[in-house]
Design a protein around this nucleic acid. Structure first.
Length: 511
RNA sequence: GGGUCCCUAGCUCAAUUGGCAGAGCAGCGGCCUUUUAAGCCGCGGGUUCUGGGUUCGAGUCCCAGGGGGCUCACCA
């Protein structure tokens, strides 16, 4: 590792930058000073000029040097900080003796962080500029910057080294500002409705609340295997038992499954639970909450996504799942009450269902293939089969169905909610059914959570519960078609298998 | 995991039928005191993802591996 900066391991441009750094040090110029004497952010300097207060006294602005145009005895340069960009005018005769020719023109590199001091002026073409009289180095950049015009396009570089993406492709920074605005608006809405934000364990002895395979980890001192949570559900409902009427959590879920344009192994989830509400109440709240987010983030409730105009204005379409699948495929799944007959019906329309699929999975695959991709406008699919919903309360009218809905938009499932099952005896039976599935090869089936049953036994008020993928919602508001674009550091495979092997060897030695 | 496409200079991209690996930006040297991707002259820069193979000759063809994109499967 010490050889990382050895000349033989550097490219020519990196060697040149390192030589410039050494020359600056030899000239006693500080290259990584601890303090900065900034007087104005670039935005503040611009505001100052617009107020007509420019020229009175010099300002010191700081930032990364993005472009340099040397015209001879004067230069123009563009400096960027987090608030914006400003042009620097650098004249030989305004800098200390020797600085222009020996330091500015020789030792400064694109990408360096510098401070520039001088009065604010407008150039002949009217561009607001700092008329520089003094320059200080703040941090030398030892790597060459990406193309100033094209930026960096390679997806792998963009995701693996997101900092390069962010510094070279300014619009990418807006994605994560929007993401923060989405999160802020969600909290704002829920806080305003009297929900309490809570935090529950990520390391769980028994995972649950969703049909997914977990990541497993281990606590050394306790000699205990633990699971990274696949949902917050069972803990949040314990809080309803405890007496909070409205709770929510925003945090990370982990699911040990494949990656795709809408799946990352860890993703951000919002869940809320509301006592004395049912799934229709939750539907209304969902529309209201997402419309609120839309107004906060975009100023309205109609957005554009990948060429589609999507109208988020409540109310949204409500469509029974059974009807949606019937319309799309001609299959009424209630007419095929077991996996074998449903699979036959699916084969008749060209499906090749895998042999180990249970009935619920078959219904879901019909929905995922024929219904979901066409739900561009916000739509609630409602009333799901009991078999695929072990935590949802059965419908009073039809015990084969549960009071559940999923919200779709942009061809993606965005949220999932139901009237929560609060009958401990029924819940235990559902767990036992799930356990049977697990024993018969369904590795996503729910484990039995006896402690949760015990919690329900103390009495949980009737409640509506809700879960939403915040990343997918962010895709919608940032007009992105893959989840990787809205995650700062999406999961990628290790790029260097040799490095990985070396790291494993070190861990082995440490044990 | 399957299919498929891609990986060439720091970045963005070329390279005809298998025949001397190139351009723009960036870098280096020079000119230039009002530019906006500044301009002009000159120069250097490559493990063509890795390892094998075929061939007189491989960026190009074949095999294996790595990584990425898309897609299918998986994913309530």
């Amino acid at each position: 590792m010490q050889e990382l900066f050895a000349p033989e391991n550097l490219g020519d441009q990196e060697r040149a930058r390192l030589a410039n750094l050494e020359a600056l040090r030899a000239a006693d110029v500080a290259t990584y000073p601890a303090r900065v004497k900034r007087t104005h952010t670039i935005a503040q300097a611009r505001a100052l000029y617009e107020q007509g207060d420019a020229g009175v006294e010099p300002v010191t602005v700081t930032g990364r040097l993005k472009r340099i145009r040397v015209m001879g005895k004067m230069s123009f340069a563009d400096l960027e900080d987090g608030s914006g960009q400003i042009q620097l005018v650098v004249k030989r005769d305004n800098l200390p003796e020797g600085w222009y020719n020996n330091i500015w023109k020789k030792l400064i590199d694109l990408g360096d962080f510098i401070g520039a001091t001088g009065p604010l002026i407008a150039t002949k073409t009217g561009e607001l500029s700092v008329d520089v009289v003094e320059i200080q180095f703040l941090a030398k950049a030892l790597k060459p910057m990406p193309d100033k015009w094209h930026g960096v396009k390679d997806a792998e570089t963009r995701y693996r080294r997101r900092y390069v993406d962010l510094l070279a492709n300014p619009p990418v920074r807006d994605i994560f500002r929007t993401r923060a605005a989405v999160l802020r608006a969600l909290r704002e809405y829920l806080d305003g409705e009297g929900f309490l934000e809570v935090e529950t364990p990520i390391l769980q002895p028994i995972y649950g609340g969703a049909a997914a395979r977990p990541f497993v980890t281990h606590h050394n001192q306790l000699h205990q295997d633990l699971y990274l949570r696949i949902s917050f559900e069972l803990y949040l409902k314990r809080l309803l038992v405890g007496g909070y009427d409205r709770v929510y959590e925003i945090g990370r879920d982990f699911r040990n499954e494949g990656v795709s344009f809408k799946h990352n192994p860890e993703f951000t989830q919002l869940e809320f639970y509301e006592a004395y509400a049912d799934y229709y109440d939750v539907m209304r709240r969902t529309e209201e909450m997402i419309a609120h987010v839309a107004r906060q983030v975009t100023g309205g409730t109609v957005i554009e996504w990948q060429g589609h105009v999507i109208d988020l204005t409540p109310p949204w379409t409500r469509l029974p799942l059974r009807q949606a699948i019937l319309d799309a495929t001609g299959i009424d799944y209630e007419a095929y009450p077991d996996a074998a007959s449903l699979a036959d019906a699916m084969r008749a329309i060209g499906h090749e269902p895998s042999a180990d699929s249970n009935w619920g999975k078959l219904v879901d695959s019909l929905m995922a293939k024929h219904v979901e991709p066409n739900l561009i406008q916000p739509t609630f699919l409602i009333d799901y089969p009991r078999d695929v919903s072990p935590l949802a309360k059965a419908s009073d009218e039809d015990p084969r169905q549960v009071e559940r809905f999923e919200g779709f938009m942009a061809g993606m499932e965005v949220c999932n909610a139901f009237s929560e099952l609060n009958d401990p005896i029924d819940q235990l039976q559902r767990f036992i059914d799930e356990n049977y599935r697990a024993a018969h090869g369904d590795d996503e089936a729910h484990p039995v959570d006896v402690d949760y049953i015990e919690a329900l036994s103390y009495g949980m008020p009737p409640a509506g519960g809700f879960g939403m993928g915040v990343d997918r919602l962010t895709m919608l508001f940032t007009d992105r078609e893959t989840i990787r674009e809205v995650l700062l550091f999406p999961h990628l495979r290790s790029s260097d298998s040799k490095a990985e092997v070396a790291a494993e060897a070190e861990v082995d030695e440490a044990d």
